[in-house]
Design a protein around this nucleic acid. Structure first.
Length: 156
DNA sequence: GCCAACGTTGGC
DNA sequence: GCCAACGTTGGC
């Protein structure tokens, strides 16, 4: 297995939990992901120390807001067991959890938010497989290649 | 607030 | 296993 550092993008809504919230708390269990593909990336792909770009969606200027790192291996998302949580899943059991998460640790805010609008200008360079600019993609957790990471950071 | 695109659910 | 209906995401 490759030891090369892996990179990821994770979306959040700044009104709910954005980069400023992550800075304040330091480390946060990334709960509430209820999409199997996103779950699989966290559960099967992420390793402690991986790089994470925090993307702000559903806001005035959608874009990349900061950097973080994966701070734990995947473990069951507690909110799936909590009937009072909006993320409750009645089909999940402790014996067979359905949803997993990782802890995410704050690293730094970018000097400026890199707007999606600007990122779209690099669609060709980022490649067809890049989930952020792929047509219709709504994935909230997805991999970023080292080359994509470098390109995106160069826009800061 | 609108709505296109997508994922999930459930009837058949 | 198909697919219509529904709920959600997220840019605009």
């Amino acid at each position: 297995m490759s030891k090369a550092k892996r990179y990821w993008m994770m979306k959040s809504e700044p009104d709910a939990f954005g980069i400023d919230d992550l800075e304040r708390v330091g480390t946060e269990p990334w709960n509430g992901v209820r999409n199997y593909q996103a779950r699989n990336f966290m559960r099967d792909g992420m390793r402690v120390g991986d790089g994470v770009m925090i993307y702000h969606s559903n806001c005035k200027v959608p874009g990349i807001a900061g950097l973080a790192r994966v701070a734990s291996i995947a473990y069951p998302d507690e909110t799936q067991f909590d009937p009072k949580s909006k993320y409750f899943d009645e089909k999940a059991t402790r014996e067979q959890p359905r949803w997993f998460l990782v802890d995410v640790a704050f690293e730094r805010k970018l000097k400026r938010v890199i707007p999606l609008e600007e990122i779209r200008g690099y669609t060709d360079a980022l490649g067809e497989g890049f989930a952020l600019t792929a047509k219709g993609s709504r994935l909230s957790v997805f991999p970023v290649t080292a080359a994509q990471w470098k390109l995106l950071l160069s826009l800061e």
